[in-house]
Design a binder for these strands. Structure first.
Lengths: 249, 249
DNA sequence: TTTAATATTGCAAAATATTGCACAATACAT
DNA sequence: ATGTATTGTGCAATATTTTGCAATATTAAA
């Protein structure tokens, strides 16, 4: 097997997963772990991935300090992202929220999927840049430097112009009675508009966020069409949301 | 068998497969591995495939990452960027155009300079992210993937909202009579609006762009306050612009 | 801390590349 | 045709790269 073939396979893996393990690759490629390590090092030097202890993670071309916020060793969001992918179909218009969950979905997006993506997140743009069949519409506004999205009235007015098929909404807190809430006023304002401009809202939430609430209101729980979590959907603690007509995945 | 026949067969193989092996080709073409190696080398020189140890893989054009492209243009534009810095003062509102020249200025910007930057360029945002004292206002719109800016009506309407002190304008062509012109209609539209929204326009132009013209009109030459070039300003070919009241740097 | 997992380094064997060269095939001029 | 230059080919000697292994160092976790 050519070295280039191994490179290709490793990079392919990172297109789908958010991490690859030395041991796994070693058996998959039929070479020693040392060789895999050296391959990874070489790819890392080319900036095509990031070498980490025990394996490798994708090199996100986005702003550096944003990348650090992603916890790669935490599989929860990756599970969520993978589950959420099933809802995206060719030709849809999709609003991507600025959180890390939506970002992971963008990273896993098949390269041949044809979408129109509307977003206010810079990292998402830098990921989708490589997707030939994705048209990107970006919401202007004031740059919020710590989360790398635009906010403010301009962003809000931008989203109001659309009627998207789906909104992928990263969730801070969901409470059956109190609805969806977030910790930042302006971001919550923008999220509210994203939701208003979409037919269906798919909430991306790790289970520990269920049943909690924060200061700023985003939307009623019933507005969500689907809640994608990292746990099995037959969990009994989800029943309360099912009663509201929301499907859980 | 003709050498050209072998070339054709090798390239055909790479059309179907993602790789070819020396050994395989050697038996297939009935020549020694050395010859195959030489064939591959020749094809690689023509850029038709990529030679790798043990065989060859299709030549991937590779996504020309916008940020990388900067390294090539450097020499002249760096001079320009350095000269242009003198015009930026604390507290100003500055529109940054999407070209590489403006990008270099952003990269050289002192970290303690206090500015409000308005732009439609993603690379500029990712540079200025690290500048604590720079507030960034970003123009939304449709993403133009090859130059990494937003364009379209949304971008135009965004710029119309401001009255900036300075517009840093990357120039495609300047002609004393025909004015400033560019090769892309939509980008030129946006540039026009940037100019309308600024008190002063500082043009960033390598000298070979002076005296040339392209298809799409941007603005009259007299609208420029300053032209920053890579040559000494006492050059006689600049006189024609001085007569129009433009300072050359 | 101790312990287990992972990384790094040096090294030798195997695979592959490069080089120089002899010779064959072809082209090209006379 | 004939000789000559040019190019293409295979072979062998040599150089380089790749790879796996083992010894050692480093890191993360208990």
């Amino acid at each position: 097997m050519l070295k280039e073939e191994r490179f290709q396979i490793i990079l392919d893996q990172l297109g789908h997963e958010q991490k690859v393990y030395l041991g796994h690759l070693s058996t998959l490629l039929n070479v020693s772990e040392d060789t895999v390590r050296r391959d990874i090092k070489e790819l890392a030097d080319q900036g095509l991935l990031k070498s980490v202890r025990g394996g490798a993670v994708p090199h996100s071309p986005g702003p550096h300090h944003f990348r650090d916020r992603i916890k790669y060793d935490n599989d929860q969001k990756q599970i969520i992202a993978k589950k959420a992918l099933q809802f995206l179909k060719d030709g849809q218009v999709v609003i991507f929220d600025g959180g890390t969950s939506a970002m992971l979905i963008a990273q896993m997006l098949p390269k041949d999927l044809k979408l129109t993506v509307i977003t206010n997140s810079f990292p998402i743009v830098s990921i989708l840049e490589e997707h030939e069949h994705v048209e990107v519409l970006f919401a202007g506004g004031r740059l919020l430097k710590d989360s790398f999205v635009t906010i403010g009235n301009d962003a809000i007015q931008f989203f109001k112009k659309f009627r998207a098929d789906i909104c992928l909404l990263g969730i801070c807190s969901i409470h059956a009675d109190l609805g969806v809430t977030g910790p930042d006023f302006e971001e919550s304002e923008v999220k509210r508009t994203m939701i208003e401009s979409s037919k269906e809202v798919i909430a991306l939430a790790t289970t520990e966020k269920l049943g909690t609430a924060e200061a700023y209101y985003v939307c009623r729980t019933e507005r969500l069409s689907v809640i994608v979590t990292d746990k099995e959907s037959d969990n009994e603690e989800f029943d309360i949301y099912r009663k509201l007509g929301i499907s859980l995945v």
